[in-house]
Amino acid sequence: MTKAADTVDREVRFKEWVKRYTPDLQRFARNRVKDLAIADDLVQTAFIAAWETMDRFAGESSPRTWLFAILKHKLLDHYRKAYREGAKVSGDRAPGDDPSETLFTPEGHWHSDHLPQHDSDIFREDDTNEKLDRALRHCLELLPERWRQAIEMKYLMEQDGSTIQQALGLSEANYWQQVHRAKLRLRDCIEQRLIPAAR
């Protein structure tokens, strides 16, 4: 094949990929990044990287798998940056960061006004529970930025602990402390929001 024909072939193949895989990649990114415009930008960046390195794509995996791998890489990069920004804004130890100080007594027991309510069913497992859904969204937004990024990496990117620890430069103990604190605060926030009158 001549060089010119090669280039044409490459272009045709790439255009086919863009046409075929953009919607799936876009949906994937939009489910994982809050800002839809940023999600779309990440898909675009991924495609640009694919275009530039296309010659190295040996076809061992499907193009779809390959494109998704590139996009995941871009997403992790995005989380890492957002985490660093978050850490910069609030510092590594912002005051009032540790919810265990307000939730637990010095002996480590629940403070009575933060004790998880075990006799109410506001936390029931029900997909149609719009109030719970709204509360969760709201409370997630209230978390310190870097906790939110760590949590989203864990759940949205399905990354295991060690990958996240490495990406964010956290020790294992430090990482679990953040997850624990984030979950404590999330849960408490949701409950306080769902039953404000009960207390």
Partner: peptide, 21 residues
């Protein structure tokens, strides 16, 4: 009972967070 409630609710939060995927 408080921690049992925490356990249940924490799992529920997990599945909600995962569901967004």
């Amino acid at each position: 009972a408080g921690c049992r409630a925490y356990e249940r609710q924490s799992a529920l939060i997990d599945s909600w967070l995962e569901g967004r995927r």
